[in-house]
């Protein structure tokens, strides 16, 4: 039950994009087309769950054990960067189909602050290993949900006549604001 609450809170209430403002660059960058949005969402779910587990292990058994928590920023970013590289090489060799699908989105994830942010949140919320796993997954699902919803809205906006100064990023941000407003109504659900 506790994990179910973490999951619901991660997907809806503390949605990583719309409530915590993490990972906004890919949110705006890859949401112009539904296809790219789905690709990015899948890549984030894949990497975020793995990164959440590995950084939790690194933090608990390496940084805390050796009492060098001030190295957290450096070690987490290294873990994420090498993980992304490793995942990319592994997929290219063994699951070429998935690699072709995720392809260009994988390297972009290194600088996606949703991944780093979720790992840091797991630590600051003092989750157990299973809790960290569930919350990473829920953040990733929340990211995917918001991204795909947003891409759908943006495809429709492309067909609308938008005033010139508001075009592109500007109208996208205002739209994101409206979606964030709807997500605010999930507050108090758990």
């Amino acid at each position: 039950m506790e994990y179910f609450e973490i999951f619901i809170a991660g997907v809806f209430i503390n949605n990583i994009l719309l409530a915590q403002f993490l990972g906004n660059c890919p949110f705006l960058g890859t949401s112009k087309k539904m296809e790219t949005a789905v690709g990015m969402a899948m890549a984030v779910i894949f990497v975020l769950v793995m990164a959440g587990m590995i950084t939790w292990i690194v933090d608990t058994y390496l940084l805390k054990a050796l009492d060098v928590e001030y190295l957290r920023t450096v070690s987490f970013i290294l873990v994420i960067a090498s993980l992304v590289q490793f995942v990319e090489m592994f997929l290219k060799k063994s699951i070429p189909g998935l690699y072709a699908g995720l392809g260009i989105f994988l390297p972009l994830i290194t600088t996606n602050c949703a991944v780093m942010g979720a790992c840091l949140l797991n630590i600051s919320n003092e989750y157990s290993f299973l809790g960290a796993l569930v919350s990473s997954f829920s953040y990733a699902v929340g990211f995917g949900l918001a991204l795909i919803l947003f891409a759908g809205v943006r495809e429709r906006i492309n067909l609308a006549r938008v005033p010139k100064p508001l075009q592109d990023t500007s109208i996208a941000l205002v739209t994101a604001g409206v979606i964030a407003l709807t997500f605010m109504s999930f507050k108090g659900m758990v």
């Binding site: 719309l18 409530a19 100064p165 508001l166 500007s170 205002v174 409206v178 997500f183």
Partner: peptide, 15 residues
Amino acid sequence: EAPGAFVALGLMLAI
């Protein structure tokens, strides 16, 4: 609140 940030930034960008 969160939505205000998006809307404010979007409108400032338009200006």
